[in-house]
Amino acid sequence: MNARTLRALAPLIAVALALIVPLAVSDRFLLKVFTFCGINALVVVGLALLFGYAGQVSLGHAAFMGLGAYTSAYCTVELGWPWLLGFVAAGVVAALGGLILAIPSLRLKGYYLAMATLGFGLLMSLAFIQAEPITGGVDGFSGIPFPSIGPVEFRSASSLYWLVWGAVGIAVLVAHNITSLRPGRAMRALHGSELGAQACGVDIVGVKVRTFVVSALMAGLAGALYAGVVGFISPSLFTLTASITFIAMTIVGGTSSLAGPILAAVALTLVQYSDALIPGLPRETAQTIQSYQEDIYGLAIVLIVIFAPRGLAGLWKRRSAGNEAS
């Protein structure tokens, strides 16, 4: 099979795989693990747009996820809103957060943008702890209801799986539309050369702000889904460590690609749950793997950046280009 047909078939294969998982997996915990994979994938799709395509770094993406999670929790638990409304509110609040960070960051590039997003992320993690009346402080927020859309409630492990991966599917579709058309080229142009992009009439301010907002929106929606799936959130989920995990997934996945980062998100999420994945794995072994999980993320970042700066997607493209040439 040559690379071109494989590329055409890839989305179908991905959808088929996603559909098979809940049928093949009977273990509820394992299904939940795959649901978490989807939640992380949703964040990473947004980060791939911002970082992988537009070249704008965000070291605070967990903050947007947290904004979404807390908004949805507050709206459903404290205000008694229907879940869907809280979900929408989560997206709106996270997108506003993205806008608020993006506008003053416009002048910043490289190191400074990275520091600004890092500082923003840390500030938000402090805020999640300090804003106790809204967030429940360090203890977090519990008793968050399951997601529901109208009369349909998503309680079972498989329905939650569908919900999350459905959202991922929609996000990928939207992201694919963006990246394959004019805005995507503007984003990649921005990444390549801001001067060149300006000379082509690209509205670099507009592209940066919009990409930031879309990216924050996706992270916020992922946060809302997490809150609904688990029913409990706390500040320890939305820390710098989480932001770096998302960055690791995006980098390993590769630049200018959606499929790569999604695959990486799934793979690196599974690292956390090796015990669920490999039945009969001794507890200690699983724990050891878990204690090295962040080492894996850190090393993955370093190795990929040094040896394969375009990530898995880059390796794949190079290989398929080689195949076509021969």
């Binding site: 004019r182 995507g184 080229r185 990649r188 142009a189 060149g196 992009a197 082509c200 009439g201 200018s256």
Partner: peptide
């Protein structure tokens, strides 16, 4: 000031953006 990761053709396509008007939303909805 070329966009190094984009192909020659894609580079030239970016030039067309100067006179195009469709933005994020129309692209998102294809």
């Amino acid at each position: 000031q070329l966009f190094e990761e984009m192909t020659a053709g894609e580079n030239v396509m970016v030039g067309s953006q100067a006179r195009q008007r469709r933005g994020f939303t129309t692209a998102m909805l294809r």
